[in-house]
Every structure is written in structure tokens, then in C-alpha cells.
């Protein structure tokens, strides 16, 4: 099964980059030619470009919810991602619309998409480091992604 692990976010904007950090760590633990690990700062149509042709896709992103606690990890499906950061770039289109568009145009869309999101604390200060609360959540997020790959 051709699988993509895609970290999304901005690696120089504090917790915004957590998805990319998780994906990088997952990549270090894997050696399977069927699994591609990639990162992107993009959303919308470019996200669609990235996932076309894979059977299974796991996306990792930062999120900010109204009552969330920094470092909290959520396992989500495309339908309920509406508060994920990069999956919903209003500059383009959100993931659900992108997926619908892909189907409409008969592109080879993944059968299964899982999204892991990590509750972010700081996404306005430029830094290559995450805040301690989010940093501490990375090992658990990596574990969840690895389990998802097996399952």
C-alpha cells in the first residue's frame, strides 16, 4: 500500500512547525519503500497535488481550538478537521473541498486519510523551537503516527 506521511506547517514559527517535526521523527524511524515521508507549508490545491496517487495518507498539523490545552493530540478525519491550521487555508480551499474536487476530476485519491493534530500555544513568534508543552507532546504524536501506519 503506497503511503504518505505529510507534516504540514511553518518550521520557523514556533508551534506552527510541530507537524513537520513529528513527520521528521517518524521518517527517522522508518525504512519502508512503500512509505514516503514529506513536509509542506502549503494548503488547498497544493495539498491535493501532494496526496494524489497515494492509497493511504497521514497528515500531521498544528491546531488551535477554543478550549484546547497546549500539547493535546487529536486523531481526526478530513470531515472534522475544520479547525486544523494548514488544512484550511482560506487563501485557497479547505481539505474537504480539495478532496471533493479531486473526486470530481477523477484524480487518484487516497482511500484513507487520517489527520493528527497537536494543540499549539504560540504561532505568532518566529522561532525554530516549539514551546515546551508542545515539544513534550512530540514523542507521543510520533508513536500515534507509527501505530496508525501499522493499523
Amino acid at each position: 500500500m503506497k503511503t504518505l506521511v505529510l507534516g504540514t506547517g511553518n518550521p520557523i514559527l514556533s508551534d506552527d512547525g510541530v507537524g513537520i517535526k513529528v513527520a521528521q521523527e517518524v521518517g527517522e524511524k522508518l525504512n519502508d519503500p512503500q512509505i514516503t515521508v514529506a513536509e509542506t507549508s502549503e494548503a488547498g490545491l497544493r495539498l491535493l497535488d501532494s496526496i494524489v496517487g497515494y492509497d493511504k495518507v497521514i497528515i500531521i498539523d498544528a491546531i488551535q481550538t477554543k478550549k484546547g490545552k497546549a500539547g493535546q493530540i487529536y486523531r481526526m478525519k478530513p470531515e472534522d478537521f475544520s479547525y486544523a491550521k494548514h488544512l484550511s487555508s482560506p487563501h485557497q480551499i479547505n481539505l474537504v473541498t480539495a478532496l471533493e474536487l479531486g473526486k470530481m476530476l477523477n484524480l487518484m485519491m487516497p482511500q484513507k486519510i487520517t489527520i493528527f493534530t497537536v494543540e499549539a500555544k504560540d504561532i505568532t513568534n518566529f522561532s525554530e523551537k516549539c514551546t515546551p508543552e508542545v515539544e513534550q507532546a512530540i514523542p507521543e504524536a510520533v508513536k500515534m503516527v507509527l501505530e496508525e501506519l501499522v493499523g
Binding site: 506552527d16 491546531i63 488551535q64 479547525y83 486544523a84 494548514h86 484550511s88 487555508s89 482560506p90 505568532t124
Partner: peptide, 9 residues
């Protein structure tokens, strides 16, 4: 100048 915040707009 800034960056996106959460939400499906």
C-alpha cells in the same frame, strides 16, 4: 505580514 489562524474561515 501575519499568518493564518485556525478555522475553516
Amino acid at each position: 505580514a501575519t499568518h493564518s489562524l485556525p478555522g475553516q474561515a
